[in-house]
Amino acid sequence: MDQYKTLVTSLLEKGLRHDSRKLMDYRPIEVEVNPIPRANGSARVKIGNTEVIVGVKFDVGTPFPDTQDEGVLMVNAELSPLANPDFEPGPPGPAAVELARVVDRGIRESHCIDFTKLCIKEKEKVWMTFVDIYPMNDDGNLLDAAALAAVIALKNAVLPKYDEKEEKVMFKEMSKKKLDMSKLPVLVTFAKNASYIFIDPDRKEENVLDTRLSVSSLADGKLVAMQKGGQGTFTKEELLNIFDLAVEKAKEHRKLIK
């Protein structure tokens, strides 16, 4: 591991990476919309060899007491052992919880979904939006892949019909109603090794990086969510530089959202 870290750092010194990318290059991104017919909305995103499937399912439930006229958003991530030799079966660990919560934060804090439109009957019945993240192959930077897939899945999700008389969801019949996604938050993750900052770390790089920062931003340049991870540090100047780069890179990714 230490040898590999030395290699990664010595390459970074020359402005290189082990897979011949430049520091601010993403791996190729592929997007597939609605690959899962049973889901109300879904997306498959590949960033290099990293592949994530995100599915959206709707149900009707009771609102939270502090937001009684708003629908509910639930984001969950399952790090299945099929995706990475280091993942173990069992309940979500800190990595899975962090992944889900960072994706959740980008969507929630950007107010890209008007949850008041997902209210059926105040205080009693609202639409619950379940976003489930399943990495199929983890070759690093699950965060960006999952965040992108979640926004695409939500944008393409269609609500099932709701029978007002019977007060139940008709899961097999689709309405024409979609979530009105007014804004599109895009998450961009930066990694730092020694004093070098680079984008979109793959799994080999993730295993040796000092620290990372993920920044979610909107088309107008507003920042909506951030998460620092890993055991290293950033200086203020590095952070301000990252904010600018994050907004620029997000513009490219936003074009992929169909």
Partner: peptide
């Protein structure tokens, strides 16, 4: 942060801010 070196060890954000506001908040 570690005040001696001013290295930042935690940064999170919930909510919508501009880059200028981010800078102001960090300072």
């Amino acid at each position: 942060m570690m005040p001696k070196t001013k290295e930042i060890t935690l940064l999170q954000l919930d909510g919508e801010i501009t880059r200028e506001e981010a800078e102001q908040m960090i300072e």
